[in-house]
Design a protein around this nucleic acid. Sequence first.
DNA 1: GATATTTAGTCCACAACGTAGACTAATTGG
DNA 2: CCAATTAGTCTACGTTGTGGACTAAATATC
Lengths: 392, 392
Amino acid sequence: MTQAVRHDAMRARNLALVLGSVSARGSLTRAALAEVTGLTKTTVSKLVADLIETGLVVETGAVRGGERGRPGVEVRIRGDRVAALGLEINVDYLAVRVVDLSRSVRLRRTQAVDNRSAQPVDVIARLRDLALSAVDEAVGNGLRIVGGALAVPGPVDLGSGVVHNAPNLGWRDVPVLSLLDLGIPLHVENEANLAALGELWFGSGPTDFLYVSGEIGIGAGLVVAGSLFRGARGFAGELGHVVVSPDGPPCRCGGRGCLEQYAGQDALLGAQNGAPAGGVMTMVGRLKAQDPAATAACHQAGWALGVALSSTVNLVDPDTIVLGGVFVPLFPWIGDIVTQTLQSRLGQMRVSVPPIMVSHLGFEAAALGAAGQVIERVIADPAALLQPPIPD
Amino acid sequence: MTQAVRHDAMRARNLALVLGSVSARGSLTRAALAEVTGLTKTTVSKLVADLIETGLVVETGAVRGGERGRPGVEVRIRGDRVAALGLEINVDYLAVRVVDLSRSVRLRRTQAVDNRSAQPVDVIARLRDLALSAVDEAVGNGLRIVGGALAVPGPVDLGSGVVHNAPNLGWRDVPVLSLLDLGIPLHVENEANLAALGELWFGSGPTDFLYVSGEIGIGAGLVVAGSLFRGARGFAGELGHVVVSPDGPPCRCGGRGCLEQYAGQDALLGAQNGAPAGGVMTMVGRLKAQDPAATAACHQAGWALGVALSSTVNLVDPDTIVLGGVFVPLFPWIGDIVTQTLQSRLGQMRVSVPPIMVSHLGFEAAALGAAGQVIERVIADPAALLQPPIPD
DNA sequence: GATATTTAGTCCACAACGTAGACTAATTGG
DNA sequence: CCAATTAGTCTACGTTGTGGACTAAATATC
């Protein structure tokens, strides 16, 4: 059930509405804001005054001229005050990003490490160092880090912040949040979900799409009308375990013939001839050299992805499909097969089959999404930032 | 982006909050309402006075006694004023239900007809007659029908109210809404979605579940935190076309090995030995007689359903799975296999596998959900009912 | 059985917030 | 230079929720 609305809540919502409009449109005059929000000029002026006082917004010297009449003074989000921390632990790297309120990336720190061979505690300690040094630098630049989020490759219990099972890292029941403790409000979430949000806020993309994350495992994040779909307990989007062939190779999830067995990084890169095989770029090299084994692996992966996506489209009806992770460099060799498979399996019934695109954010999507999520929260409720709830 | 909140919107929300609380808890005193909503006694009294004046709520003579102090006067939803119409066109029947604001079913009309052999126009005309007579009777009983919804077996374009393709009825591009025109605000929606909502509001069920509708086709409606998930365009939940086996029998959707080919009514009932086979009850008879062909068909259907549901659980993370339609009478013969298949395919990774239950609403789930949706809307925004928007 | 206690509901002065429209400010067009 | 036009502020006002005093109606206690 919704909450009671009192004067303060009314004000908070309108404040958020104004801030959100400024954020969405870059910069606007008070008059334009009044038109966009439906509030009166008087009210907008008051709200903007509040936002300026808080330091969330500034008047740009620039004024909108050209037309007749008194020129308006534009306001825009102030990027030099409030910022958020985006963190990611993945199998072979750690990433830290600082994003300010205007959604500019202020700081990037990435470290290549093999996190599979290290203990969770050590990985987290390393991330902690990286994050703290980034926070220090940001604070030195006058930024106030109001919160952060951490992406991990695997399902996470959102409430407790415990990673129950991240098979690709070899983690089980790791209480990341309490181990990390940066003295900043933090939360953890699935890498695919946060990458999807990264795509939403930092990509050129649409507001309705399924983001497919091709890492060691395959995950997906579904964004509908600009917000993330998490399912009942927050474990939605496990695309890697959608059934491609019910009697296919056994999977560590207990099933058989899951997508991951055909299009997961191990299957895709290792499938060439049993040898451990290099990274994705080695694979790309072979593909360019028209290596038949590599081409066949891609073909199979593309077909399997198409099959799994056809189930997904039927269940979840995304508008667009955005491929990320390893699927980006491999797209020239799998794109067509995926599209064709999807088309042939859905074409008869659906009016339109969702187009398949490629993410342009690279591996930083998740860390950006993590930081963006915090920024988004501030914009959606700036009042909360000013008056933090009294701790009991 | 959200809308500006003005005083009238604030009031409308609080009105909805009070009405919603009364609706959810049966009957409450003003004092209890104040506690539940967080509003002051004064405000609650004013709002309740409004609701009483509107006729949405009444004071019950009864008062809550027993304890010390002045007894409170309880108020409850008034069921004798406002009601909604729930309609369903299915393959072999038409159903009309009238549900009042207190969610009591006031009227049931069902007609068995073979809608596959009739023209859409005729089917709709027949439903129209049935609905109008029901409305007449309801109006005669002092009810005001404020709106209605129609369930059809197949994906519907919510905006236009056009059924693009309902293969089980043999319909293509039928503008149901404009043909039906009852002089009451109406909308159309997928049968599975509305049945899921029926289960939510009239079943004994939970607020997070996947409802599986076993009709000629197989559909699903996903309810998360008490609201329906529709996907980007409203076509989510096509469980019948989730892939069970990628090279299985061809399906009319263009794919192969879709769930519908294994567990759809035709496959399930027809699969016995090529003969047209009677209805579900004939099948049940054979199963009771331990007919091996019937048992095998059930086994296969249960297995396929388990496979498709394992993909679904991975993608969409439902808390519970509720089976409806033909799966209800067949449950004794398929339940175990579904559960086992699901368990063995998900058990390794998931902390808990969603339990599988059976709907108790029978075939009226969709029509009830349809009416319930309208009632829900009134309770969520009673102010809109009082001041209908001025038509342009 | 009278009185204290407790709880329900109403009343009234007040505060918070948005509105409407008059008013001032700063441009461009003629 | 003045009219027209648009931006932004100012002020009186309306709507709505609040808080606490007040009335009402029951039970508990002596």
